[in-house]
């Protein structure tokens, strides 16, 4: 059984389902990337894994435990970290306070974790007294990822972490994400920049209309001519 096993997820916000039997699995320390056209249900699938979407069918297990009925907050306690696409920092709080809030549910000493986050994103250490709302887009994303890492999650979920940042910043962010995965944390990520994301992915999911269309290693998907033509623009 995979570390995360979200099987056969079906559901939506209103009457109409957005997801139709979508399945996502992530192994320990693996980077899984969800790509697909606009409206394919990528973000929705991510939200379903995190418990922000009511499921009609299907189940989600984490490390063998069924968490289908748990609230997002409880999933955080179980070891999930989630970085929303927008509004993912506390803008009028300093970088350090953002990280502190990330560790809110921890009752132990989190200073070591904060040091690790600062090692991972050295720029944040320099700006730790500055308000997150005053940082550049890329730095804000680093704060957002850092905040999620403060709970020491086993699975980190990122909803389009590179939306709106420059290509250079994107490459840097991907490098950091690889580093996070090396430390044994599983990554599940939705990406708009499909080609670059698949390059770093151990596993890729191509979703279309709420269903799994292709599932393979990132490399294989990049090599698949049909995927290239239909989803990667040639």
């Amino acid at each position: 059984m995979s570390y995360l096993n979200a099987a056969n997820m079906t559901g939506g916000y209103g009457k109409a389902d957005i997801l139709h039997g979508c399945t996502l699995t992530v192994e320990k320390g693996e980077i899984a990337v969800i790509v697909g056209p606009n409206g394919a249900g990528k973000s929705t699938a991510m939200k379903a894994v995190f418990g922000m979407l009511p499921l009609r069918e299907g189940s989600v297990t984490l490390d063998g435990q069924d968490i289908t009925a748990l609230s997002p907050q409880d999933r955080v306690k179980m070891g999930m970290g989630f970085v929303p696409q927008v509004n993912n920092v506390f803008p009028t709080m300093s970088v350090e306070e953002n990280l502190e809030m990330g560790a809110f549910i921890r009752n132990d000493d989190y200073r070591a974790t904060m040091a690790q986050v600062f090692d991972l994103f050295p720029i944040l250490k320099d700006k730790r007294r500055q308000n997150a709302g005053e940082l550049s887009g890329g730095q804000r994303q680093q704060v957002a990822v850092g905040r999620a890492l403060m709970t020491q999650p086993k699975l980190l979920m990122l909803d389009e972490p590179t939306a709106g940042v420059s290509p250079i910043v994107m490459d840097e962010l991907f490098d950091r994400i690889i580093e996070v995965a090396r430390s044994g944390i599983s990554i599940l990520m939705v990406e708009q920049n499909a080609r670059q994301a698949l390059e770093i992915a151990d596993k890729g999911y191509v979703l279309a209309q709420g269903e799994n269309r292709y599932t393979d290693t990132g490399e294989a998907l990049l090599a698949n001519p049909e995927v290239r033509r239909t989803f990667l623009g040639g």
Partner: peptide, 22 residues
């Protein structure tokens, strides 16, 4: 204080505060 900061966090971004377990 932790409680005071959690209030500022809640004021700043309610959804994220909930995600953080506040």
């Amino acid at each position: 204080t932790r409680t005071g900061k959690s209030m500022r966090a809640f004021s700043d971004n309610e959804d994220l505060a909930l995600l953080s377990g506040i």
